[in-house]
Simulated assay, not measured.
Amino acid sequence: MKIDLGFIFQWGFRPFFILSGVSAIGLLAYWLLVLKGIAFTPETISLSDWHAHEMIFGFGAAALAGFLLTAIPEWTGATHLQGRGLALYVGLWLFGRLSVALIDLLPLFLVGLLNVAFPLILAWHTLPHLMKESGKRHHIFIPMICLFIGAQIAVYLGWSGVGEDFELSRRALLGGIYALIFGIIITSTRISMVVIRLALDEQNDQDSLFRPYPYRRNLASVTFLFFAAADIIIPETSIMGWFALAAGAALMDRLSDFHVGRVLLKPYVQFLYVANFWIALGCLGMGVNAFWELGAATDLRHFFGVGAIGTAILMVFTIAGLRHSGFDLIVPKRMIAALLCMITATGLRVLPAIPDNPLPIEASYDGAACFMILGFILFLSKFIPIFCRDQQKVLPEKH
Rank of each mutant, 00 (worst) to 15 (best):
C388F: 11
R334S: 14
L225T: 03
L209K: 14
V263C: 08
L340R: 09
R197W: 09
Y156V: 05
G96F: 07
E54F: 10
L314M: 09
S99Y: 11
L168F: 02
F224T: 03
Q391M: 12
K333W: 05
F67D: 00
E74H: 11
E362N: 11
R14T: 02
I45P: 03
C370F: 12
F109S: 14
N204S: 12
G175K: 01
G85C: 08
K333V: 11
K132Q: 10
A220I: 03
K393F: 11
G66C: 08
G248I: 00
D299W: 08
L27R: 03
L284A: 06
S20H: 03
F317A: 06
S160Q: 11
R254Q: 14
F95V: 13
I140C: 10
L105W: 14
L35P: 03
V162E: 10
R217A: 14
N115I: 06
A368Q: 00
I145G: 02
L92Y: 09
F277M: 06
S208H: 07
M286C: 14
I72H: 01
G305M: 03
V155W: 00
V274S: 00
F118V: 06
V116E: 04
V222W: 08
F327C: 09
I145S: 04
G307Q: 03
Y30C: 02
D201N: 12
W159P: 00
V162I: 14
K2M: 10
I181H: 05
G248Y: 00
L219M: 13
A363F: 14
F317N: 05
F304M: 04
A62W: 02
G307L: 00
L102S: 13
S325W: 05
R262C: 09
S192V: 06
A39C: 10
